[in-house]
Amino acid sequence: MTSCHIAEEHIQKVAIFGGTHGNELTGVFLVKHWLENGAEIQRTGLEVKPFITNPRAVKKCTRYIDCDLNRIFDLENLGKKMSEDLPYEVRRAQEINHLFGPKDSEDSYDIIFDLHNTTSNMGCTLILEDSRNNFLIQMFHYIKTSLAPLPCYVYLIEHPSLKYATTRSIAKYPVGIEVGPQPQGVLRADILDQMRKMIKHALDFIHHFNEGKEFPPCAIEVYKIIEKVDYPRDENGEIAAIIHPNLQDQDWKPLHPGDPMFLTLDGKTIPLGGDCTVYPVFVNEAAYYEKKEAFAKTTKLTLNAKSIRCCLH
């Protein structure tokens, strides 16, 4: 018999989150649709729960009410004593943790798909938090293969000092899905179709896995975050240069030392320094102006996964 890495157990509980950011409308629209008619997301033997994560922000069509829901799922915020004085999103995070967690427990949901849009030209993107997770690498390989020839990129946010504390991190297997470009507060049919297909293929993978299909060893190309880059700023902290036209919409493309990065209003080009080629992502993302992030630098690498098969009882 072929030796293989056996994944822990079959997958039982899956959640699909929309509206973690209330103005990213593809996930909101799909989740609302699936709450009314969820036939397309159901798979035999699998509990799939669509869920609106930040209903107040969705109602106002804004990213958040008090603070970013997708950055506060750490033990400090989840452990705060519940009171009306807490920011709305912290209270909501505790409610979500109660419903789908608790985080880092045996009772937490197996998989959470968190649906997002970006204003950046990132196409279909899967966000991975753990480079050693054979199950998710296999799932992402399946999704990428199923979507081809449509490109699907994998963004690895594993980093020693950049801690995200994402909404989906309460699950055993957290999956971020990011599709763009799409303006905030807008629905685009092409973007919706791409996100819908990503979810379909992900659920198909889980179904095949649960039925005992063995997935042979595989490898995927990923883009691992190195650092986030702020806009150049003046002495008052105001933005002093904008994304250069040569960099705009060039997510995932190589940016070499000396290539144009920013452009000042008086026409001066600010190039990339250093001696390493990087791959920019979230270029000129609207939501990241407040976070002082013009783009993120990534490096390209390959992740390998062992063969996996479900432990059938």
Results as ranks from 00 to 15, higher is better:
Ile6Asp: 10
Ile11Glu: 00
Lys13Cys: 04
Ile16Asn: 00
Gly19Asp: 00
Thr20Lys: 02
Thr20Val: 03
Glu24Ala: 08
Val31His: 00
Lys32Ala: 11
Asn37Phe: 15
Gly38His: 09
Glu40His: 02
Thr44Pro: 07
Glu47Leu: 09
Lys49Pro: 00
Asn54Gly: 05
Asn54Glu: 04
Val58Cys: 13
Val58Met: 07
Cys61Asn: 15
Arg63Trp: 04
Tyr64Ala: 08
Leu69Val: 10
Ile72Met: 14
Leu75Cys: 12
Asn77Gln: 08
Lys80Asp: 12
Met82Tyr: 11
Leu86Ser: 13
Ala93Ser: 09
Gln94Tyr: 12
Asn97Arg: 09
His98Glu: 11
His98Cys: 11
Ile111Met: 07
Ile111Ala: 05
Leu115Asp: 02
Leu115Met: 13
Asn117Glu: 12
Ser120Cys: 13
Ile127Thr: 13
Ile127Gln: 08
Leu128Glu: 01
Phe135Ile: 05
Ile137Lys: 06
Tyr142Ser: 03
Ile143Ser: 00
Lys144Thr: 11
Thr145His: 12
Ser146His: 11
Leu150Ile: 13
His159Val: 14
Leu162Asp: 13
Ala165Gly: 13
Ala165Cys: 08
Ala171Pro: 04
Gly176Val: 10
Val179His: 03
Gln184Ala: 15
Gly185Gln: 06
Leu187Glu: 02
Leu187Pro: 11
Leu192Arg: 02
Lys200Val: 10
Lys200Leu: 12
His201Thr: 09
Asp204Met: 02
His207Leu: 15
Asn210Val: 09
Asn210Ile: 07
Glu214His: 12
Pro216Met: 05
Tyr223Val: 01
Ile226Thr: 15
Arg233His: 08
Glu235Thr: 08
Glu235Gln: 06
Gly237Pro: 00
Ala240Val: 11
Ala241Pro: 02
Pro245Ala: 04
Asp249Glu: 05
Gln250Val: 03
Leu255Met: 09
Pro257Phe: 02
Gly258Phe: 06
Asp259Gly: 05
Met261Tyr: 00
Gly267Leu: 05
Cys276Ser: 13
Phe282Arg: 13
Tyr289Pro: 09
Glu290Val: 08
Lys292Phe: 11
Ala294Met: 02
Lys297Thr: 07
Lys297Tyr: 06
Thr298Met: 06
Lys300Arg: 12
Leu301Trp: 15
Leu303Met: 05
Ser307Thr: 07
Ile308Asn: 00
Cys311Phe: 08
His313Phe: 07
